[in-house]
Write a protein that binds this DNA or RNA. Structure first.
Length: 502
RNA sequence: GCUCCGAUAGUGUAGUCCGGUCAAUCAUCCAGGCCUCUCGAGCCUGAGACUCGGGUUCGAAUCCCGGUCGGAGCACCA
């Protein structure tokens, strides 16, 4: 019986989370896209979206395209292109091709001209507000009566026009129930430098048009995206139909949120601007950077995506689910260290000054760490407060001590060598000679219900064992009996960590 | 307001297409126990749900109609 690999049973038991099969998917032929707009840092919602697209492409041995949806020069910023790629790499995703929508302007112009020639698009110089009202009331403006020649002439002169003065609109169906079909704008004039294209273009396609073309000419077979785009399918398929372009299969799912944590750029940006949080990587935020800083690992995001699936309900999960997944993933690979919050001194008579060596992990072989011990020890105030003279306490991985005096201030104790039932005595972590100061940044939800949480970020301090000094920024370790933390920064004599979770 | 989408334990999810095998899955959370030189991990047990009202049917979480609640869209943003 002992010869059987015990892992055999574990593998059987722990079934991997998987996503359901992708409709219309053929092995080796699936092409998906990651379509960020370079106007901010991705958050966990984007992360799940990216992961779905990545997952299916890999599952079907297909291809992933990283495509920057950068057709609004006023919104895009150069810094975000690389920043987003960095975040995607951190998430553990890879892609075969990289593309900017803004690189295909000539193609968009070409397809636009075709629509105009077909009489399916027209130049409109009406006030946007007026158009909006007309569309709302299922009415057209007179612009749609222009001749093809007139439209072409105006189209060719569009690049020289004033911003907001003219738009190219699709001849759709103003009476459609689907408001997106009511003669939507296809191109508008924007006189603003673009981070990649500079001042080269002033006539820019809107998302629906550029996306319709791109998803087809890039060969995308499956589009997985959140449901704010639900009404665009009909429109985009219609545009492609007119231009005889192939349409991909589109799957929708609801936006994903974590309770108490704003999960959209629209909500996150003002928090940063108003300095409610430090920046895009604030550990309270659910931006990928924020999660990283908090010690949430990429695999946790993957697992979360598989747990949610392409849900059409409106998932709003508790942090506890994220924490639980993360904890189970990092538990076997996190080195253990002693950290003592609010250190209370314990003078231990008979503790010979010497060097000891302790395992980094109780079950796994993660190496050992050394430290010096002497008579002067420190234990957490919370433990010190609950012990009384006459008790025996275990200094974890070291020895037992007998408490002689546990009044206010320093506790007096002596080494206790009598046999005791190890199961029945309290074990505490400790520090002794040459400890390092440690600050712990402890994030919690930014909102409790709709109220701002005034204590969303607290800082605790204490002493850590000397070997914590040698840890690298970014390492995730466990402070025993305290929680998992990620090393955030190090300076002379001080290590700052972020508390991931218990 | 209009259009579309959704609703399974506290939370998330499976099951709904093709009604019976669902006295409803799994995870998390909570409670209790075991194990452990951590308050972590692991193990065991328990508690906890089909939005409501009608209808079809021998039989409805599943099909139909209506209500309620929640979300999204109604940009010269994406």
């Amino acid at each position: 019986m002992e010869e059987i690999d015990p892992n055999f049973f574990l593998v059987e038991k722990k079934e991997k989370r998987r996503l359901p099969p992708l409709p219309g998917a053929e092995m080796g032929k699936v092409i998906t896209r990651l379509p960020p707009e370079p106007n901010g840092y991705p958050h966990i919602g984007h992360g799940l979206s990216f992961y779905f697209n990545y997952y299916y492409a890999r599952e079907y041995d297909g291809e992933v395209i990283l495509r920057f949806d950068d057709t609004n020069p006023k919104a895009e910023k150069a810094e975000y292109y690389d920043a987003i790629k960095k975040d995607l790499k951190w998430l553990g995703l890879s892609w075969e091709r990289e593309h900017n929508m803004s690189d295909d302007m000539e193609a968009y112009y070409d397809y636009a001209e075709r629509l105009i020639m077909m009489g399916k698009a027209y130049m409109c110089g009406c006030d946007p507000e007026k158009v909006s009202k007309l569309r709302f009331n299922k009415c057209t403006c007179n612009c749609q009566q222009k001749s093809v020649d007139e439209n072409i002439e105006q189209w060719l002169g569009m690049s020289g026009m004033e911003e907001g003065s003219m738009a190219l609109r699709l001849r759709g169906d103003v009476t459609s129930q689907n408001t997106a079909m009511r003669d939507p704008t296809l191109f508008r004039v924007i006189r603003h430098p673009h981070p990649v294209q500079g001042d080269k273009y002033t006539v820019w396609p809107v998302y629906d048009f550029a996306c319709s073309i791109e998803d087809s000419i890039l060969g995308v077979t499956h589009v997985l995206r959140s449901n704010e785009f639900a009404l665009r399918i009909e429109l985009q398929d219609y545009i492609r139909g007119l231009l005889e372009l192939r349409s991909p299969i589109t799957m929708q799912y609801s936006r994903f949120t974590i309770r108490g944590s704003p999960t959209s750029k629209r909500l996150i940006r003002p928090l940063i601007e108003e300095k409610v949080v430090e920046g895009w990587d604030d550990p309270r935020l659910v931006t990928l950077r924020g999660l990283k800083r908090r010690g949430i690992i990429p695999e946790t995001v993957h697992e979360l995506a598989k747990e949610m699936g392409l849900s059409t309900a409106e998932p709003e999960i508790d942090w506890s689910l994220v924490e639980s997944i993360n904890r189970k993933l990092i538990d076997p690979i996190s080195k253990r260290f002693f950290f003592v919050e609010c250190p209370t001194e314990v003078d231990v008579e008979g503790m010979k000054e010497r060097e000891i060596s302790i395992r980094m992990h109780p079950e796994k072989d993660l190496g050992r760490r050394d430290m010096k011990v002497g008579e002067r020890m420190f234990i957490p105030a919370s433990d010190a407060g609950s012990i009384a003279a006459g008790e025996v306490l275990r200094l974890k991985d070291l020895c037992n001590i007998y408490i002689d005096n546990a009044g206010n201030g320093t506790i007096k104790a002596h080494v206790h060598t009598d046999e005791v039932d190890m199961r029945s005595i309290k074990k505490v972590q400790w520090v002794s000679i040459d400890p390092v100061e440690v600050n712990i940044i402890s994030p919690s939800p930014l909102y409790i219900g709709k109220e701002v949480n005034p204590d969303s970020l607290t800082v605790l301090s204490g002493l850590g064992e000397p070997s914590i000094r040698a840890l690298d920024v970014g390492e995730i370790v466990q402070f025993e009996r305290f929680g998992f933390v990620r090393i955030d920064s190090k300076s002379e004599g001080l290590v700052t960590v972020v508390l991931s979770h218990k």
